[in-house]
């Protein structure tokens, strides 16, 4: 049984030489993982992050961008390990959403 992320040797189209300047939020995701995973904090192991990404399933794995997969998995691990709660995350997300909408008016 081959898992979805384990793609070495599968058929695929040409390698398009794509790149983009990473957006501030993408760098923030990278920074979150670096900080939480650093030897001082050890709040997440890179293999925990990877397991969470692999478990997003084939649909999400291909539909989400790289850092969308990262933040999805990172957040799940933080919740699973009790570092943040679903309730406080839900409230904070709503707070950010409203703040950004207000700021854009």
């Amino acid at each position: 049984m081959r898992r979805h992320h384990d793609m070495g040797g599968l058929d695929a189209g040409p390698v398009e030489p794509t790149e983009h300047d990473y957006l501030p939020w993408e760098k923030k995701v990278d920074a979150l993982v670096r900080l939480a995973g650093d030897p001082k904090r050890k709040m997440i192991a890179i293999d925990e992050l990877r397991r969470g990404i692999e478990n997003l399933g084939p649909g999400a794995y291909d539909e989400l961008s790289y850092y969308e997969r990262w933040i999805s998995s990172f957040t799940n691990v933080m919740i699973e390990k009790g570092h943040i709660s679903i309730d406080e995350l839900g409230r904070k997300m709503e707070e950010v959403r409203v703040r950004w909408q207000e700021a854009a008016k």
């Binding site: 923030k28 995701v29 933040i71 990172f74 995350l89 904070k92 997300m93 707070e95 950010v96 950004w100």
Partner: peptide, 11 residues
């Protein structure tokens, strides 16, 4: 993106 900001602020 909202989740990223919210998680950062919570941390």
């Amino acid at each position: 993106m909202i989740m990223t900001e919210a998680v950062t602020e919570l941390m």
